[in-house]
Write a protein that binds this DNA or RNA. Structure first.
Lengths: 149, 149
DNA sequence: ATGACTGCAAATGTTTTGCAGGTTT
DNA sequence: AAACCTGCAAAACATTTGCAGTCAT
């Protein structure tokens, strides 16, 4: 079995919990894998519904949780009250920069910051297990538009 | 007028928006100022109710939004679905370290990280306007407990 | 049979909104 | 009067849960 195939990984994960791979779960995984950026449960639900009109919202919510536990998805929280999911397998950790005007997001990573975060935590007696960092700003394009306008 | 008094600041802010200082708003501000750490709207509502039994939840929500806009409070989001408020006036910006076991939070600041964040954003074409950074880990006490247990 | 899975509808929990009545200017 | 403020109840919103029926082992 090719363990670099996400569907196999998921099936394997499910089996380890005595759960099963089902058509719905397969569909949700497939839709998820075909999306590039950060998708919400509702967006995914709408896309999945185009392929299987009978699918239920709850199933999408439940499956996304499973995908997160399987390490195939990662929950990201931009603080606007909706949980988004991004690909979690094979991708390394990264943080986000979000444009406050147009909502564009890019993924970034700065090793020096990562190192300083670990040190900072240690200095306060904490063993770092994870972090979330969101930078908010104005992107080049939006800045240009504002100058013109 | 002593502009280092939070109540005056709030009154001033309200006036600038043609809004009024009222007993309820004053009470909510006072309760807020007496709390140390991060308080939720509901917690604040319960505290305020002890002093004025007739106060309404909606008023607390609305007033906390106003306090944020006035710069006296700041919204913080630990990602658990509840918005918390911390003091925003006179306090400088800081980030948070949260213990995943006991929930203890401490406030931290690292100038080098702040500088690198700005650079990182600039490198990607963004003018940084703000950021949120939460470090998650295990605190010293919880680590000790685990070693014993 | 047993245990898992589904869609649906109802429940949840936080926050927002509409509104009728009251107060300030 | 006009504009603002209040508490209440209802609405809104994302998410979770209970359930009855279905399916796989």
């Amino acid at each position: 079995m090719n363990m670099h195939n996400e569907k196999d990984i998921f099936t394997d994960f499910l089996a380890s919990r005595k759960l099963r791979m089902t058509p719905q779960r397969g569909l949700i995984l497939d839709v998820f894998l075909r999306t590039k950026a950060h998708i919400t449960s509702e967006e995914l639900y709408n896309k999945a519904k185009k392929r299987d009109r009978s699918i239920g919202q709850a199933t999408v919510y439940r499956t996304l949780k499973l995908l997160s536990q399987a390490g195939l998805a990662r929950e990201v929280d931009f603080g606007d009250g909706v949980v988004r999911y991004e690909h979690g397998y094979g991708d390394e950790h990264h943080d986000h920069i979000i444009c406050e005007r147009c909502g564009k997001q890019i993924e970034v990573l700065d090793e020096r910051i990562e190192r300083l975060q670990k040190k900072l935590a240690a200095r306060h007696g904490f063993t770092l297990t994870g972090h979330s960092m969101y930078l908010y700003g104005i992107c080049r394009e939006c800045r240009r538009k504002e100058e013109k306008g």
